[in-house]
Write a protein that binds this DNA or RNA. Structure first.
Lengths: 220, 220
DNA sequence: ACCGAGATGTGACCGCTGTCAACATCGATT
DNA sequence: AATCGATGTTGACAGCGGTCACATCTCGGT
């Protein structure tokens, strides 16, 4: 039994683990069922006992990626510590965006996979159970908070999620796989700060609020 | 010689034409050298006389796509007709973004291909010859104009291109291949208007400017 | 008018991929 | 102990990008 047991034991988990690793290193296009099987030490068709097709495996990796992203965003969100509630809410929105971008730049492969098979979050707005563990929900709650503390006028709330998400996502995409990928860390921090403070200005245009501190990414 | 001449005549052009058509219908992943050759009625290896590899063909299609995009943006830009120079400049920035998104939604396949092989425009800032026929240059000129007419304070100019591009590109991506692809035309118009006017607010936060009219896309 | 050279197209081949069907093996249940 | 369903294997197929030797055509120089 010591020599190559016929049954792997927990092939499914092993495949997922290997898949995550492969995608982290080479992005979605590096994900090959056959190479995965090779890596795990199993025949090339064995994976089909656990995944209907390649797509199904991609979906599982996407879930993992989403979790990792939420974790990274939370890490940044939790560091926010401001005396003023308005500044707190504003800062949280900024850090939310910065965490999103940070994940995109740190875990390029996972991020790229995420948006070749994103699990349509805006549709499932009804399930209030695990709501919150999803960047989209985090964003909406941050915006609601900004309305609650009086920073965002209620008339500007509609569509604000899409505006924020678009800006931050666009920045991430352009920097990860787009024409902005050559930017230095300093240039990135500067332009990202301009973008995030721009959003802040767009929402708080009504009143006269104190300026926000710049942002710096930890791209490691 | 009427029956299948050995030499095609202008295979290269025919291949490019077919490639553009295929990408328009099925996106970049539908672009296969072999199917192209089949469609043009030639053996699959013939294409390699005209293109080093698949990538080279993709690049040519990308150029075409970029031209088409610039044309569409121009079409919208040229319609702007406002008495006030400040309103003109503001409106032009809005229409620039709307045109970008409109192209993304109209020519989904070409747009998606464009960003799997984007010809790094920010790098080639030196060539002043054909400058202007590139969305990035159009954007920069629109922003400079906004500074010139006094809408954007000079201290906000740095990084403004990236902010605008990110927001609009993110919106396009999320709507074309991302989680926002289910949006109705009305929802899209509304959220895009919110986004574009948000950018307008972010830049003109200093003064008290008249409101801008909403935006509507022609997705046909 | 010819003839050779360079350009262009062909078919066979390689290795890679995802996917399926037939077969082998194992563990748990009866 | 026999059996059955879950799991893994082998072998095949089609499609892909890419390369090669070879066939065919076109055109310019003599």
């Amino acid at each position: 039994m010591a020599t190559t047991p016929y049954h792997h034991g927990n092939l499914r988990d092993a495949l997922v683990e290997a898949a995550v690793e492969v995608v982290r290193e080479g992005g979605p296009e590096a994900l090959s069922l056959r190479e995965l099987a090779r890596r795990v030490g199993v025949s090339h068709a064995a994976a089909y006992r656990h995944f209907a097709d390649r797509e199904a495996l991609v979906d599982v990796v996407a879930e993992r990626a989403l979790e990792a992203m939420v974790a990274q965003v939370h890490r940044r969100l939790d560091r926010v510590d401001e005396p003023d509630p308005v500044t707190t809410a504003r800062r949280r929105l900024v850090e939310l965006g910065a965490g999103y971008v940070e994940f995109a730049l740190t875990e390029t492969g996972l991020f790229r996979l995420l948006f070749t098979a994103y699990p349509d979050p805006p549709e499932g707005k009804g399930d209030g159970d695990d709501a919150g563990e999803d960047p989209y929900n985090l964003l909406n709650r941050a915006l609601d908070e900004l309305v609650a503390v009086g920073f965002i006028g209620p008339e500007l709330r509609a569509g604000a999620e899409v505006t924020c998400w678009s800006a931050v996502h666009g920045f991430a995409v352009l920097n990860v796989e787009g024409p902005l990928r050559g930017l230095s860390a300093d240039e990135r921090d500067a332009t990202l700060t301009a973008l995030l403070l721009g959003i802040d200005r767009a929402f708080g245009a009504g009143g006269s609020w104190p300026p926000l501190a710049p942002v710096a990414l930890t791209t490691s």
